[in-house]
Amino acid sequence: MRTEDRSLESLGLAGVPAREPLTYPGRPIPAPSLLNGGELLRLDVRTGRLGDWYVEEPVRRRLDEALVDEGQAVTGRRHPVIAVGSNASPGQVAYKLTRLGIPATVPMVPVRVRGIAVGCSGHISPAGYVAGTPYVDREAETPLVVTWLDATQLKAVDDTEFPDYRRAILPGDDFEMTMPSGERLGGAYIYFSAHGVLADPATERPRPGGGDQAELLAALLKDSPRLRELLGPDPASWVAAAGSTSRLRELGTRVFGDEGWVLPQTDFLPYVDESSRLRVYDELPPLAGSLPSAP
C-alpha cells in the first residue's frame, strides 16, 4: 500500500535543465531509486545482483519483478551508463524519454567512481548551457549516478548526446565503481565530450564542472571580452542568445578555442565503444557491469 507521494514534483526533482538552462545540471537522485514515469520509487540496497534489490512502493517486491510487472526489460538485459551531468537528474531523464514516447522506467543508483573527475565541455549545448564532461584523473574519487537503460532508451540517450559526445566503455579493473552495497561494477558506459575539456586560465587545469551554471557562465564572460560581446552581459542573456540559434553556439564554441581554454580529450580513446558509431542496439550484449561483483 502506498504511504507517501513519490512524484517527482512533490520530491522537488521534476526540473528539466533542457527547458531551464540555468538550472543545469539539475538535481540528481538522492538515493538508489527506480524512476517510473513521473515517480521516483525507493530501492532497498542489498548484497548481490541489482535485480534482487527491493522496490519499496507501492508493494514491496524485487526490482526485476517490478520491471516485469511494468512490461519492461529486467536489469540483466539493461546497460549501465554513468551520468556526469543532467542524466543524473530524474526530471531530465524522464523528459528525454517520454517526449519520444519511450517509457521512463529506469533504475538509477549512486556510485563512487575512481579515476574520473567532472569538468566542463569545450562547447555550448543546444539548450544554451555549458554541459559537464568526465575526464581522467587517477587521483579522483567522484560520486556519480549510474542509470540502467534498455536498448531503446540507450538509443534515445545516444541521440541526445551525439555528435557532441562519444560513448566509451569503462572497465571496472581500470576505474573502480563501487555500489552503495559495497559491491563493484565490472564495467559501465560513459559519455565524454568530443570538444575537449575547458581549462581554468589561472591554473591551466580542467575547470571544475557540475556546479552552479550561472556562476560558470558569469566566470566565462568575465574572462573573455569576446564572449561578453557575443553572448553578454550576463548568464541570462547568454542562455537566451545561445539557445536561440546554432550560429551563436558555434561562434561561442569557437571563442573557447581561440582563448586557448580547450584541453583535448584523449584518455578515453582506448575505451571508445565502436558499436555506438554503428548505432546497433538490439545486438549489444549487456556489460558485465549489469551484475555487480564481490568487493
Results as ranks from 00 to 15, higher is better:
Val280Glu: 15
Ala83Ser: 07
Val118Ser: 05
Thr142Ala: 12
Arg6Met: 00
Pro80Arg: 12
Leu185Ile: 03
Tyr135Glu: 02
Phe192Ser: 07
Ala202Ser: 13
Arg114Ser: 12
Gly257Pro: 00
Arg167Cys: 10
Pro25Thr: 02
Arg254Cys: 04
Tyr95Val: 01
Leu43Ser: 02
Ala94Asn: 11
Gly187Ile: 07
Leu170Lys: 10
Ala242Pro: 03
Ser246His: 05
Glu229Ile: 00
Leu67Ile: 11
Glu215Pro: 00
Tyr129Arg: 05
Gly15Met: 09
Ala66Tyr: 10
Tyr271Phe: 12
Val255Ala: 01
Val118Trp: 06
Leu8Glu: 05
Asp282Val: 02
Gln153Tyr: 04
Ala127Gly: 10
Pro80Gly: 10
Pro21Lys: 10
Arg2Lys: 08
Ala219Gln: 13
Glu183Arg: 13
Pro58Phe: 07
Ile29Thr: 13
Pro103Arg: 12
Thr142Cys: 13
Tyr191Gly: 04
Gly128Thr: 07
Ile169Lys: 07
Asp174Met: 03
Ile116Asn: 09
Gly91Phe: 03
Asn36Tyr: 03
Tyr54Met: 15
Leu13Asp: 03
Pro163Thr: 11
Gly122Cys: 04
Pro235Lys: 02
Arg138Ile: 01
Gly12Asp: 06
Asp5Trp: 07
Trp148Lys: 00
Gly211Asp: 06
Gly186Ala: 13
Ala288Ile: 11
Trp148Tyr: 15
Ser125Arg: 08
Pro264Ala: 07
Ser276Phe: 15
Leu291Lys: 03
Val81Arg: 01
Pro28Gly: 09
Leu144Ala: 10
Val93Gln: 04
Ile29Phe: 01
Leu231Met: 05
Gly48Lys: 15
Ala294Asp: 08
Gln153Ala: 08
Asp234Ser: 06
Pro233Arg: 07
Ile190Cys: 00
Trp238Arg: 03
Gly119His: 10
Gly38Arg: 14
Ser244Tyr: 00
Leu22Pro: 02
Arg247His: 14
Arg46Cys: 09
Thr23Leu: 07
Glu215Lys: 09
Gly132Glu: 09
Ala156Val: 11
Thr245Asn: 11
Ala214Ser: 15
Ser224Gln: 00
Ser276Met: 15
Ser246Met: 01
Val109Thr: 06
Pro17Phe: 06
Gly85Ala: 12
Val81Pro: 02
His195Leu: 01
Leu170Asn: 05
Ala214Phe: 03
Pro292Lys: 14
Ala140Leu: 02
Gly186Tyr: 10
Phe192Met: 00
Arg226Asn: 09
Arg228Phe: 02
Asp258Ser: 13
